[in-house]
């Protein structure tokens, strides 16, 4: 989710530039300290790689839609958080200059929302602790999915904060938030699965390319595939349940506001359009309205959250089996 110049005021832009520059300065220092001249061409080409893969459409199983790769988590899993962060800055700068994605003024925000969370939080707080005692396929899947979901949630939260701090929109904070977070939960999940698929492939082909991979670590018994799946399901359940509780606990949610608006006469035409849009949404969504109809209780909402996360887990499991199936087929072939 790229921030646009129009959505921020100079003060917010400047603040975010300062934050991002601080993170960049720290990363430059760290990368210089490592002194690996080889990283320079690797960073440049990996940046171009992220750029190119962002343009691939990935079919999401079971739906007609497609997902895309954003790349922060993927880059830091290969390059480490600091080089990954600097590479993402390059990617975002070229995106805003050449493809009008984002903007020059909003660059500070975009670096923070996408690169900082993706690389620093994703790599340092999620990837590294999980990989501490050696890598495995299951751990890579967990780390990628968790990393992408959490960093995208943080990113979406920051977009909301930055827009509201700029006083651009009249949308109440909570309303905006309840619209942004669930959408990005879905996006993060898809991105996480794509990232996981790519990293698992790399792990099987050339594990030494992954950040933090040490051969001697691999001898220790790692978490089993099943245990990890159970952990992943529990975490997903908790997150989904918590989020939907959070989403429903405000009476001035998006639906409520629009309902109130459609009751008024002046803006009927617009209201109708929205109603129609809502109808379409109801028809397409897996769980319309995020809760059972006619049930406004927190229980109902979090029930739908749990059903949602079960679906998520099912997708994860299916994807894992797909990998396994694919891998077997490959090993048979070779």
């Amino acid at each position: 989710m790229h921030m646009a110049d129009a959505l921020i005021v100079p003060a917010v832009a400047a603040t975010m530039y300062v934050c991002s520059s601080a993170a960049a300065a720290y990363s430059v220092k760290k990368v210089r300290l490592e002194y690996e001249p080889k990283k320079i061409p690797v960073m440049g080409i990996m940046g171009a790689f992220v750029f190119a893969t962002q343009m691939i459409n990935f079919t999401i199983p079971g739906t007609g839609s497609s997902g895309h790769l954003c790349g922060g988590m993927l880059l830091s899993a290969i390059l480490g958080p600091f080089a990954g962060f600097l590479t993402m800055i390059g990617v975002l700068l070229i995106q805003c200059l050449l493809f009008a994605d984002g903007g020059l003024l909003a660059l500070g925000c975009n670096v923070w929302n996408m690169a900082f969370y993706g690389c620093f939080i994703g790599a340092l707080l999620i990837w590294r602790p999980i990989m501490k005692s050696g890598m495995s396929r299951a751990k890579i899947i967990v780390a990628s999915v968790l990393g992408c979901v959490i960093t995208l949630q943080l990113g979406a939260f920051s977009v909301t904060l930055e827009t509201l701090a700029s006083g651009i929109t009249e949308l109440p904070f909570k309303t905006f938030l309840t619209a942004m977070q669930p959408i990005h939960l879905a996006i993060g999940l898809v991105e996480g699965l794509i990232t996981a698929a790519v990293l698992v492939f790399i792990y099987e082909a050339r594990p030494e390319l992954l950040w933090g991979y040490k051969e001697e670590m691999q001898k220790k018994p790692a978490l089993s595939f099943k245990t990890t799946l159970v952990i992943l399901s529990v975490v997903a359940l908790l997150i989904a349940g918590g989020l939907s509780l959070f989403a429903s606990s405000y009476p001035d949610g998006l639906e409520w506001s629009i309902e109130k608006l459609t009751g008024s006469t002046e803006l009927e035409a617009v209201g109708n359009v929205y109603e129609r849009a809502a109808d379409i949404q109801d028809a397409t969504a897996l769980l319309p309205d995020y809760a059972f109809k006619d049930s406004e209780s927190a229980l109902g909402t979090s029930f739908s959250g749990i059903v949602g996360s079960l679906v998520v887990v099912a997708v994860c499991v299916a994807a894992c089996y797909a990998f396994r199936f694919f891998r077997r087929k490959r090993s048979v072939a070779s």
Partner: peptide
């Protein structure tokens, strides 16, 4: 329309390698 999920990893992974 897009890339089937079974080859997500290998297609992008090959390109990455």
């Amino acid at each position: 329309k897009g890339i089937h999920f079974k080859v997500w990893g290998s297609l992008v992974g090959q390109l990455l390698l």
